[in-house]
Structure formats: C-alpha cells, structure tokens
C-alpha cells in the first residue's frame, strides 16, 4: 500500500483541481460562460488548453509504449500529433474565430448549420457523430487512468475509477470551460515539468542516449530506421496516411476544435501554432526516448513487463520504478498521468454536454428553452457522461486500443471534409455535406472493421473513408444548387485564411 507522502501528493493535486472548479463556478453566469468561458481565453491559457486537450493519458503511456515496441519508425507521430494543434489553429481556428465574432457560435455545429443552411439534419448528424466519438475516446482515457492508479496504490479498479471520475466531474460540472481551461494551465505545466525531469532520468539510467541507440541497432537494425521496408507495418506510405490521419483527425475532433471559439483576441493566433507545436513536440520526443530506454532495460533484465496484451504501455511506469528508487517520486508521476488524463477527459465531458444541451436540446427539441434550463441540462449531461463512462470503463471492451483508433478515424472521415470544404469552397452545398458526413461515418466503420478483422490494408483505413467522403462532397455539390451568396459571405467562405478587408 502506498505511503502517506504518496497519498498526500495525490490529494493535494485533487484538491487544487476542485479549488479551481470552485473559483470558476463564480464566473459562470450563463450558457455562454459555461460552454465557451465567456470567450475570455488569453494566450497561455489557450495554448496550454490545446496541449492539454490533445495530450491524453493514453498518449503518455502509448507514446513510450510504441517507441519501446517499434523504435524510430514511430517518431513520425511526434511530428504529426503536435502539428494537429497548429493545423487546427491555422486552418480552422483563424477563420472560425473571425466568423464567430459576428455570429456568436457556441459550438462548431452552429457553424456547420449556418454555412450549409441545414439547421436540422446536418446539426443532428454532426452532434450525434461527435457524441459517439467523444464517448469512445473518453472510455479509453479512464482505462489509462485506472492502469496508473492501480499500479501506484495497488487499489482495485473500481476505487481507482471512482477517485479519478469524482474529481474531474466535480470541477467540470461546476466550472464549465472556465474550470477546464484554467485547470489545463496547471495540468499542462505539471505534464511538461514532470516529463522534462522524468524522461532524462530514465534515459540516463539506461546508459545515456547514445548507448540506447547503439543497443537498439544491435537488437534489430529496423529499430533505428526512419521507416520499415515493404511488408512491415510502418512503411513510408502507411506512415504518411497515418500522419495525415493524426494531424487532421485530431484537429477537427469536437473537443479540440471547439476551443478556438473561446479565444478572446485573434492576435493570439500569431504565435499560438508555433508554441503549441514546440511544447507538445518536446514532451512527445522525451516520452518516446524513454520508451527506447525501456528496450535496453528490458533486454538487460533490469525489469520484466507484465504478461498482458498491452505490456508495452507499462514500460514507462516500470522505467520510473527502477530508475527512481523512492516511492514519493512515483506519486509525482501518478500526478503527471492524472493531469494528462484529466485535461482531456474534462474537455470531452464538456463537449458532450455542449453538443447535447445546445445542439440537440436548445437548437432542435426546444428552441424557446430559457438559458438557465440549457445550462442545467449541460451540467446534468456532464455528470451522466461521467457515470456512463465509468460503468463502461469498469469492464473495458477488449478492443480498446482499436476503438480509440476507430474514434480518431471516424472523427477524420466525418468532420474533415465538411469543415474544410465549408470554410474554403464556395460551391460546397448542404446536401453534399450531409451525404459526405454520413458516407464518411459509414465507410470508416466498414474499412475499420475490414482492416481489423479481414485483412490489413496498405494505407490507414481512415484514408479510404476520407476519400469516399471527399468524392461524395464534390459530386453531390456539383449536382445540387449552391448555398445563397448572402450566407457564403456571412460565413466568409473562400480560398483564403485571413478575411479580405471589406
């Protein structure tokens, strides 16, 4: 059982988060405050909110796990995942924020409904797809947190889940995006500081960076190549499709893209892409190198990984356990993982709350609903989403890793084409957006299942689904009547990022 220092450190962190929630709850007066933080986010809060949202608990364990298993060919995820932050800000954020200043969108569904002149069908389809992928992602997050808490405290799964869920649900429910954004500031700083300290210790413990690489080359030359030869998993063509999936898929994920609506001032988009990319890029490189160090430590018999299917996800935990001989320091790592998981789950829960209360209840079921009622429903849905997720995570589906990849793949094939075509192509029509979104969703399911159960495809499955979605968008758009010029001008549609001066 954990000692008193460990319990104290984790408790202090949890109380700090609930304290932020209490402070934020005083600032929440209406739905706009709750869902977009009154559009008040400044530079560092926004940048670290984006880092915290994209960096999840699974990425913390999974990045080093993948490095441990496949070596250097997997470093491409380090380039493309942080790049999704920059992609989201530049290709979606700048224009969406400029339109929102005039229209006051609360969710991205507001934009899609406006731009495609489809107040019911497209909004409903988009919100339902968004809620489904957010749930899949959420269950994966809670499983990551359970792995770490069970390892640290040697407590049963249900207790670990209840602790984690309770804390994140309290501050998210009472404080909305105010709490989520300011908690992300603290959580991202904990994450960055923690990884900067922990990863070098593990690498040093394994004999230093040069030794680790020489050792990897002697184990298997493929471990130190930038990609693998034909016939292996990470071939160059697969890596490109995988990289694009990660970059664009994460950029248009509902819990990531909605952050741009909460920004206070467009001037912050000047340096936010660079800072978001660099901060998260450095964190991911260090985690990956810690995974490489794990290859040395396991081969030299310093520790053996548990005999489970996802054994590589434990490599960073065991690395810390061996490289740092004091239990109180492990609890700091537990707080790092808690911070990474919470900064993603809180945003996901709030996104589900927003899509349900705003897009489905307020905009479709009861347009005359008073603001207080919408706010209350948001809060109820946040709590319900936490409960449902916790029940699902108690008996995690066997195909969890597959489901998480499926979630990102579905995000990409459902949202990328309607969003990009909507923002930049004046000829894209509402009917085409509905067909493109529906076909993207369905074909992602088909190609994903085919890839998983029948045979491996040469490119990542989502690549084919996006292609279907894109072809549908072009053909149906050209066959249907365009949206009115008035709407296209209101939504600043055209081949530009910065809006031309009027």
């Amino acid at each position: 059982m954990a000692d008193i220092t460990t319990i104290a450190i984790v408790t202090i962190y949890c109380l700090l988060m609930i304290g932020i929630g209490g402070w934020a709850s005083k600032k929440v007066k209406n739905t706009e405050d709750y869902l977009v933080a009154g559009r008040s986010l400044g530079f560092w809060v926004f940048v670290l909110l984006m880092v915290g949202t994209v960096c999840s608990g699974m990425s913390l364990l999974g990045v080093s796990g993948l490095g441990f298993k496949f070596g250097w060919p997997t470093i491409w995820e380090q380039i493309f995942v942080p790049l999704s932050i920059a992609f989201c800000i530049i290709f979606f954020g700048v224009k969406l924020h400029a339109i929102t200043r005039e229209t006051g969108y609360i969710t991205v569904q507001d934009y899609l409904a406006h731009r495609y002149d489809s107040p019911m069908t497209l909004r409903t389809l988009s919100a339902i797809a968004g809620i489904i992928v957010s749930f899949v992602y959420l269950v994966g997050q809670y499983t990551a947190i359970a792995i770490v808490l069970m390892w640290l405290f040697e407590i049963p799964l249900w207790l670990a889940l209840i602790i984690a869920t309770l804390v994140v649900t309290i501050y998210t429910t009472i404080g909305g995006l105010y709490a989520v954004a300011w908690a992300a500031l603290i959580q991202s700083l904990i994450l960055i500081g923690g990884v900067l300290i922990m990863a070098p210790i593990i690498i040093f413990y394994a004999g230093g960076f040069t030794h680790v690489n020489e050792f990897m080359a002697s184990v298997d030359p493929n471990l130190v190549q930038p990609w693998m030869p034909g016939g292996m998993v990470f071939t160059p063509s697969y890596l490109v499709s995988f990289g694009i999936l990660l970059m664009i898929g994460l950029a248009c994920a509902p819990h990531v893209i909605n952050n741009v609506l909460a920004v206070k001032d467009a001037r912050l988009f000047k340096w936010a892409p660079l800072l978001g990319f660099l901060i998260y890029g450095v964190v991911m490189f260090l985690l990956k190198f810690a995974g490489f160090a794990g290859i040395v430590l396991v081969k030299e018999g310093v520790f053996t990984l548990p005999d489970v299917a996802n054994a590589q996800d434990f490599v960073i935990l065991y690395g810390i356990q061996n490289a740092i001989p004091h239990i109180a320091l492990w609890s700091i790592f537990a707080v790092i993982v808690l911070a990474a998981v919470m900064s993603t789950t809180d945003r996901l829960m709030l996104t589900i709350g927003a899509m349900f209360s705003w897009d489905i209840y307020k905009k479709i079921i009861r347009p005359d609903a008073p603001d207080k009622q919408v706010l209350l429903i948001s809060k109820v849905v946040v709590v319900l989403s936490a409960l449902v997720t916790m029940i699902l995570a108690l008996n995690p589906p066997e195909m969890l890793a597959f489901l998480i990849w499926m979630g990102i793949g579905i995000m990409l094939s459902t949202f990328a084409v309607p969003l990009l075509a909507g923002l930049y192509w004046r000829r894209a029509t509402g009917t085409a957006a509905i067909v493109s979104m529906a076909l993207g969703l369905i074909s992602a399911g088909i190609f994903g299942a085919y890839y998983q159960y029948i045979e491996k495809l040469p490119l990542h499955f989502s690549f084919y689904a996006v292609l279907v979605s894109l072809i549908a968008m072009i053909i149906v758009s050209l066959a249907t009547e365009p949206v009115s010029e008035k709407i296209l001008d209101e939504t600043k549609t055209g081949w530009f990022i910065r809006c031309p001066e009027k």
Partner: peptide, 17 residues
C-alpha cells in the same frame, strides 16, 4: 521538426480586422 518550426515561424511573422 526543424522544417515545421521554420514554417510556423514564417506564419507568425506574416500573420497580419
């Protein structure tokens, strides 16, 4: 990594409503 950093620096300097 370096190429992307340069591109994003470029974006920052030329980012102008």
């Amino acid at each position: 990594m370096i190429i992307i950093t340069l591109l994003l620096l470029f974006w920052g300097f030329f980012y102008q409503n």
